[in-house]
Design a protein around this nucleic acid. Sequence first.
DNA 1: TTTTATGTTAATCTTTGGTTAATGTATTTT
DNA 2: AAAATACATTAACCAAAGATTAACATAAAA
Lengths: 232, 232
Amino acid sequence: MEGKKILLVEDDPNFGAVLKDYLMINDFDVTLAKNGMEGFEKFKKDTYDLCILDVMMPYKDGYTLAREIREKNQEVPIIFLTAKTLKEDVLKGYKVGADDYLNKPFDSEVLLVKIKAIIQRKASEVKPDTNQFEFTIGKFHLNSKLRFLTFPGQEPIKLSPKECELLKMLALFENDLMPRELALTKIWRDDNYFTSRSMDVYIAKLRKFLKLDENVEILNVHGEGFRLLIKQ
Amino acid sequence: MEGKKILLVEDDPNFGAVLKDYLMINDFDVTLAKNGMEGFEKFKKDTYDLCILDVMMPYKDGYTLAREIREKNQEVPIIFLTAKTLKEDVLKGYKVGADDYLNKPFDSEVLLVKIKAIIQRKASEVKPDTNQFEFTIGKFHLNSKLRFLTFPGQEPIKLSPKECELLKMLALFENDLMPRELALTKIWRDDNYFTSRSMDVYIAKLRKFLKLDENVEILNVHGEGFRLLIKQ
DNA sequence: TTTTATGTTAATCTTTGGTTAATGTATTTT
DNA sequence: AAAATACATTAACCAAAGATTAACATAAAA
């Protein structure tokens, strides 16, 4: 549950700051945006596990923002914060794809319980895309669930979570460019100098493993990303 | 969604009847019980897709009933109806394993939306067959009802409830990953540092028992969970 | 040729898991 | 009621696994 990324969009700066601090104390990684516009910009730039949106905001209200977020991402859970308890609002929220509704003023402990319940629920749902976990990479076979990379006549190689996720993503883009930025935001959940270097380290590790099959190779596309090349 | 069975436990006969009718008009198959005692009797006699429990009831309140229901069945969704909005009550409800909370007076349309959302969610969850209680684990045989683990030429080993549940869950995932989080939420009903360590202690105990058969092993998948490996 | 991006190794830091034993807690036996 | 028991949780310590960072080397682009 630790380190889950939350996008908090709240126009009241005091309340926003307090709530952010409270969530961070409880081991969430919180990004605060002070209006709908900024919220959507931040949403596009990163990958979040949960969005908490204030309904009443100037320029762009919570519902509009939620609809925009849903266009980009059908999965991410959304919680609305609202002072209103009007039925139409609640129904409107559910229609836009809300996961829960919280009336202000609310108890922080209740919010925490709800957040945990929602994140846990989402985690246990079957995701159609991410569900594939068996890959053939040249003579190799990758099981990304058990994190095993097998090669005929060899003991299976155990992969670390990062090694495994990276190789899986390369395999999904087989022979095609896997953008650097994509791997960083999806796997490292952050895109900066250090995570970028970290990724390079992992590329080196994978190359070492993949040496067993001379027809498999990870190529760099300068400034763009990497390419898992599988010859013939 | 049609014909789903709902157990409605509500002591106010007027309100109960109205709600029952409303739900039946909306194609649910509703059984009404007028107190906790009767509710539990009816629950044991049939299989329901959802329970809607009033919190405030004479003799046996909704929480107590929910706990009893949870003992028999960890899966069935529970919605509480309550006039109170006290924080402790909400938290208590979630701890007992509630799926949602509704404050009276509530809007019937909202209730309907919630019911549908919850039933749909539960339907999409994968549930391993929890009724099975006989397992073959290599040369071992586990009876999870009597909590006996037998090995040819040995006195049967008596297992404690936790030992047994954990081994059973591992057996259900035989040779596949049993996610740590799943065992914690299902068996320990909580997922935190201490329950996690407690589980590790139980894994150690099970490993000790399983040593008798060198083809049976509990492997760890770092950060993910455990795997009951049964060789050939 | 100067800057920027990548390759690689090793050191350091962090998180997770294994194990034993002590402590807590409820139930049963005496 | 006290003692015994069975079981579960917590603590403590160590080991293993994994991730990041630093440092230096090399390659590609501006």
